[in-house]
Every structure is written in C-alpha cells, then in structure tokens.
Design a binder for these strands. Structure first.
Lengths: 203, 203
DNA sequence: CCGTAAGCACACAGGGCGGTGTACTTAACG
DNA sequence: CGTTAAGTACACCGCCCTGTGTGCTTACGG
C-alpha cells in the first residue's frame, strides 16, 4: 500500500529498490534456481543493500512468492486475450512458447521448495488451476463436448512439455502441441469433416 | 529411538553400510528432497557413521547419482517385461502407478540440482530417453504406424502427470492415461472397433 | 588367534546461508 | 530550512551444511 505511490515522482536515490530486487529475482531464480541463489548475490545483482531488501520483504520466502506472482500478466493474458485468434487457435497458441523459456517457474518452485505449505507452492497450485480453468473456458467457447476435461488435458500437456524440456534439454512443446491438436479435434464434434482419421501428430 | 545394541550380543549393524545408506536415501530424498536432506540426518537414518558414508561415496553428488541408478529395476522392468499383457495394455500399464509414488525422482533431481553437468542430471537425461525408447519399442510391437512418435508422446504424458501431481497434490495419472488411450488408438490402425469407447474416459 | 578391513564416535574446519543491528546518507516535499 | 521516508555500508550472529582427521572397536577369514 504505502510502498510505491508515496511519491508522485517515483525516483528516489535508490531508484525503486523493490522493482530492481524483483527484476533480479526473475533472472537469477531462473538461471540458478531459488535455493542456489543467496540473498547476498541477489542484492548485489539488484544493486540494492541487503538491509533495504529486508525492509521490502520480511524474508526470502515472501520474496519468492512475490517473484512468482509477477508472471501472470505475461503468461495468462498474452495467450488467452488474443482476439485475433479463433478459440481453437487460441488453445493451440498456448503451446507456442518461445524457445527462450527455460522452465515453468511454478513447477520449479514447487519442486525446489518441497513444501506444499509454502506460500509460493500454494500460489503455484492456484496458478496451475487457473490456467486449466482458462483453457477450459476457451475449450467451452470452442464448443468442446467436455470443456473441463479438455482444459485439464491441455494443462497436463503443457506441464509435461515443460518438465521434459527441462530434463532432456530439448524443446518438447512441438510434441505437446501435436497431441493437443489431436485432443482438440477429438473434442470438437462440429469441426468440418472427419477429424478423427486425419488427426495425426507430428513432432 | 530404538535401543540399538552396539556390541555385546548380536551383530553390530556394520557390514551392510552401503545398502543401508542407499535405502535411507530413497526414503529421505523422496520425502524431503535432495537439498533439504543433510548428510548428518541421512547417516543417522541409515544407522551409519558419517565417516563410513564418505568411505563409500566420495561426496554427496556421487551418492545422489547412485541413488538415482537404483530405480531402474523397479520402474523399467516391472512395466515393460510383463508378458501377461498385450503390447497395447503394456503401454497403458505405464500409467498405472500406485498413489504412493510422490514424484518421478529424475525430474525432481534435475530441478533440484539445477546443473545439467551434474552426473545425476545426466543420468536422468539418459533414463528419460531410455523410457521413451522402450515405449517406442512396445509401440512398434503393438503395430503403431510411427512408434518413435508415440513413444515420445507417451513419455511426455507420463512426465506431465508426474509434474502436475506434484504441483497440484492430486493424482493426474488417470487423465494422462485417458489421453494415452486416445493416442494409442489413433496410432494403431488395426484396432478399429475394439477400444474406441475407452478413449472417452477421463478423470 | 591374529591380522586386517570395515565400521564407529566425535570433534572440528570452512563456508554459505538467512537475517539483524547500527550508524549514516540522500532525496523529496512542505 | 527541517522532517521524514528510503536507501546505504558493513559488520555480525547463529545455524546448518559438506567434508576430514584421529583414534578406537568390532567382525571375519585364514
């Protein structure tokens, strides 16, 4: 509340420590993982004194949770709010991830923290459910017979591609997109022609 | 704790240290994660002195790598060497995991260690490729048109179910199995009327 | 019965970590 | 100007972690 809008002109001498901390988190947590990134290193990268960091975040756990919350706008909206695509194409667009994306940070956080009670783990849980829900909404919009099922299935494909990309160090999203195309065509009874036979995947 | 009799009667718990260490690793690494399990705690659980542990494994990294290698027999063989099942059922049996399984330890290790050069990460990589290859073999045996593709697709489903089970704390393997049934039926041209209905089941 | 290898108990080094205390400096605003 | 909120510099604490050094005890094979 009293964090940012205190001053009309935002720049104090430290030029917005909180933003720099979160920005550095995005980079370091992704590159090195959460557990392997110490607060000292993080503050050095953000050019912020450690004391200031602990005045913005009571502890590292809270910082990690906030770091995760910063991913929503770029992931959820940029895919689902595209009005230039038909619902079916929007579902497939969820698998068009740029190859720069290393790994879904929510999965990484859940595994690294290893504590379902951790606020970041709980947020990851909620986020994954939200993605499945938005996929289901889009599936319903596309006329799927069982939108919830299709949404859950597509969400599973995304997570599978993310995990596999990480372990194998090779992009697995094309394979997932191929499966998604099959599932979508199987779930849309009104698409033109006999989709069932032509539903072939290609990686 | 238990009154561990240390000398007078009965064999000292010595002479099986390595096995006990690896056994304790399986339990603790799964329950708590690798990074959150210290060598002190591990040795205490294994009833092994720390000195002995470091005479069997030069460092923790090597222990982690060896810990991962102990999963092969129980995962690869127990599914693929079942002669009582037809190839198609064998493919689906890969999704019949007992609910006690918390998470694929290979994914967990890759994420936790966060270093593709780590021996355990490399072994995880090889293992995942081996699973995909065995799935492809079984797919070929079942008469799939593109066995490699189907194997890779099923492997992705397994990893997706594992990751999603972890993040959501809910079993995602039934959903993955439903998708697998669809993919398998789409890839087997000769099973036209038999299993079509099963492809509609889901979580 | 003795030698040797395996195991044990325990202390300790060295380092990284999360987090704090203290005294100080600067920018913004009235 | 003065006040005040934000940031700084840096030392420091306590904890836990991996990994060793040292001397001692036990089991087993010949």
């Amino acid at each position: 509340m009293t964090d940012l809008e205190k001053g009309p002109t935002g720049r104090r001498r430290g030029r917005g420590a909180r933003e720099r901390i979160l920005s550095a988190s995005q980079q370091l947590f992704r590159e090195q993982g959460i557990n392997r990134t110490g607060m000292d290193q993080l503050c050095a990268a953000a050019q912020v004194s450690k004391r200031t960091a602990y005045q913005h975040f009571t502890n590292k756990d809270e910082l990690v949770a906030e770091y995760l919350r910063r991913f929503d706008p770029s992931v959820l909206s940029n895919v689902f709010d595209r009005t230039d695509l038909a619902p079916r194409e929007r579902l497939l667009a969820a698998f068009d991830v740029p190859p720069t994306t290393p790994l879904c940070p929510y999965i990484a956080a859940s595994v690294e923290l290893h504590d379902p009670q951790h606020p970041a783990s709980q947020y990851a849980h909620d986020y994954k459910k939200a993605v499945a829900a938005r996929l289901a909404d889009t599936a319903r919009e596309a006329g799927a017979t069982d939108p919830e099922q299709l949404g859950e299935q597509l969400a599973l494909l995304i997570d599978g591609a993310a995990a596999r990309t990480r372990v194998l160090n090779a992009d697995a999203f094309p394979t997932a997109a191929a499966i998604a195309a099959v599932l979508i065509d199987n779930a849309l009874p009104d698409t033109a022609g006999d989709h069932r036979e032509r539903a072939e995947a290609s990686s």
